[in-house]
C-alpha cells in the first residue's frame, strides 16, 4: 500500500480550479447573497444550561441525533435479520420459498420508500400496533423498565411511531441486503459445500461454520453501503413525526429561519456518522483479511 504520491501538472491545474470555485462560492455566499448569517443561534440547540439546576442539558439536535442512531441501529439489526432470512429463501431448493423471497425483493425494490413509510404508518402503526397493544404494554411497565425502553427505543408516547419507523426502514433495507446475502452465499465454491457435507455437518451447521463466515467477508463492502443507506433512509421517517435529526432540523428551521446554517449543520452530522461507520467497517475488513494469512 506504499504508493508514492506523484503530483502532475494536470493535478495542479485541477486543484487550482477547484480552489477557485470554492473561493467563488464562499464569496457569493458571504458577500453577494442577500442572507443574514446567524451561526451563533445554533449551539444552544445542541446543549443549553438549564436555569433551574444550572447544568448542561442536551437539546433537540443532540436528542435528534441520538434518535437517528437508535433508529438506524434497530433498523440495521432488523434489516440483517430480514436480509439473511429472505436471502436464504432466495437460494432455497423449494420453489415456494424462492417465490416468497423474490416477491419481497421485487415488491420493495419497485416501490418508493416514502410510500412504504406511509403504508406502514397508516396500516401497521395505526391499525396493527394498537391491536397488539404495544403502547399499553409499554405504558403499564414499571418505571425502571419504562426508562430502559425509553433509552433503547423511544418514550411511551413515541413508541409505536418509533417501532413502525424502524420496521419500515428495516423492511426496505432488508430487500437490498437479501440480494447481497444471496450473492455472497452463491459466490462460495461448490467444494466448500461438498467438503462440509461429506464431514456430516447439517445444513444449518454448514451455513453457520463454513459458508456464512466466508460469504460475510466477501460482501462486507456492499453491506457497508447498505448500513450507510440505513442511516440515510432513517431521515425519511421524519414525515411520520419521529423526532430524529432531520425532523429536528425542520423544527429549528421553522422557529428560527436560519435555513442554510441548520442544513449545513445537519449535513455535517450525517456526514460524520456515516463516515465514521464506513471507517469502522474498513478497519473490520482489514482485521478480517489479516486473520486469514
Amino acid at each position: 500500500m506504499n504508493r508514492k504520491l506523484k503530483i502532475t501538472t494536470l493535478d495542479v491545474v485541477i486543484l487550482t480550479l477547484l480552489l477557485a470555485l470554492a473561493a467563488y462560492v464562499v464569496y457569493r455566499l458571504t458577500m453577494q447573497l442577500n442572507y443574514k448569517w446567524n451561526w451563533g443561534i445554533l449551539p444552544q440547540y445542541f446543549f443549553y444550561i438549564d436555569e433551574e439546576t444550572g447544568r448542561w442539558v442536551a437539546n433537540i439536535l443532540v436528542k435528534g441525533l441520538w434518535t437517528t442512531i437508535r433508529l438506524s441501529f434497530w433498523a440495521t439489526l432488523l434489516a440483517i435479520v430480514f436480509g439473511v432470512v429472505t436471502g436464504l429463501m432466495r437460494i432455497s431448493k423449494r420453489l415456494f420459498w424462492r417465490l416468497i423471497g423474490a416477491s419481497y425483493v421485487e415488491l420493495i425494490r419497485n416501490m418508493p420508500p416514502l410510500v412504504l413509510v406511509f403504508i406502514f404508518y397508516f396500516f401497521v402503526s395505526d391499525q396493527i400496533m394498537p391491536l397488539l397493544g404495544v403502547e399499553d404494554f409499554v405504558r403499564s411497565r414499571p418505571d425502571n423498565v419504562k426508562n430502559l425502553l425509553t433509552f433503547l427505543f423511544a418514550s411511551p408516547q413515541q413508541f409505536t411511531a418509533f417501532t413502525s419507523g424502524a420496521i419500515t426502514v428495516a423492511v426496505f433495507q432488508g430487500a437490498y441486503i437479501t440480494e447481497i446475502v444471496r450473492a455472497g452465499i452463491q459466490s462460495i465454491e461448490k467444494g466448500q459445500w461438498e467438503a462440509s457435507y461429506a464431514l456430516g455437518l447439517t445444513w444449518g451447521q454448514q451455513m453457520r461454520w463454513v459458508i456464512l463466515p466466508q460469504a460475510v467477508k466477501r460482501v462486507l463492502p456492499p453491506l457497508t453501503n447498505e448500513f450507510i443507506n440505513t442511516i440515510k433512509y432513517s431521515a425519511i421517517v421524519s414525515v411520520i413525526s419521529i423526532q430524529e435529526l432531520t425532523f429536528q432540523g425542520m423544527q429549528i428551521m421553522a422557529s428560527t429561519y436560519v435555513t442554510i446554517e441548520v442544513w449545513i449543520t445537519i449535513t455535517a452530522i450525517y456526514l460524520l456518522i456515516c463516515f465514521s461507520l464506513s471507517m469502522g467497517v474498513r478497519k473490520l475488513e482489514v482485521h478480517l483479511a489479516r486473520s486469514e494469512a
Binding site: 465454491e189 467444494g191 466448500q192 461438498e194 467438503a195 462440509s196 463454513v210 463466515p213 466466508q214 467477508k217 486473520s291 486469514e292
Partner: peptide, 9 residues
C-alpha cells in the same frame, strides 16, 4: 477431493 476443499477461513 481432487481440489482439497479445505475451509480457507
Amino acid at each position: 477431493f481432487q481440489q482439497f476443499n479445505l475451509f480457507p477461513h
